[in-house]
Amino acid sequence: MSKGNIVLTKEMFVPAEDNFLEAETISAPSVSYWRETWRRLKENKLALFGLIIIILLVLMAIVGPYINGYSYFEQDFSKKNQPPNSEHWFGTDTAGRDLFTRAWYGARISLFIGLMAALIDFVVGVIYGGISAIKGGRTDNIMMRIAEVLFSIPYLLMVILMMIILERGIWPIIVAMTITGWIPMARLVRGQVLQLKELEYVQAANAMGAGTFWTLAKHMVPNMMGPILVNITLTVPTAIFAEATLSFLGLGIPAPEASWGTMASDSLGSILIGNFYQLAIPALLISITMFAFNVFGDGLRDALDPKLKK
């Protein structure tokens, strides 16, 4: 007997003995959370591109100021306002300083401010949000109300006010930025801790007598790293942006130090006399950095939250 061109024989109809085994081999290998995140991140070409730019920027911030032998503060008025040329790759500014060196020195300052602000926000946020969530009840309520009031003051306005009473310099800027900058992080951490607190393994750790802070450090922080990392990635550009605006308002890093913000605002006047490159270079660097951190942060968020990526 045949069906189509298949010849059916009696032997084919004897019971199969090994059919259940096959079910075992079908299940897909399970992949760890971070590896899975990394796989999804790699698929997002834009985010990967952002990450590569960030790495390049950091590298250049480290080695860039030493490449062509000039220093960031050395003035040479005989060579002022030179457009980019073979000797001064990015040209010189109104005081004859080498813009290539200054640009990467500025990268160092701007990235330092951004990363430091993000780091401090992270530490304060984790502590404040963590305490608030773990204590719960009345303490939680009061702590969150205080945060909410502070948060309703516009971020940049607060930073400007702080800079008015602080000295000008890198650390005062960082302090001014973090004075209310930690609040979003604290809220995020609190939300995460409240969720995690209900999970069994955390309750188990508590039942076994682990202190609350120990629990927070050991069990919770690694589990909340995803959303926190996204928040940090998106804090860096906010801080760089704020630094640029402060510089524009004359509250930035004092000369002869350089940040991208001061370089850009110093050159605002000189574009009217045709030295467009003096603004273009820091403007481009700020924008590229903002772009890189934003697309990387977005990509990271999508990669960590596969629900959205269906």
């Binding site: 942006f241 605006t245 850009a264 574009i271 700020i286 903002m290 772009f291 934003n294 697309v295």
Partner: peptide, 18 residues
């Protein structure tokens, strides 16, 4: 949108004026 978020307003304003 990314350009809008990446370019500080004083730089954008200067470019527009220029």
């Amino acid at each position: 949108a990314i350009i809008g978020i990446s370019v500080p307003s004083f730089i954008l304003a200067t470019f527009l004026i220029n």
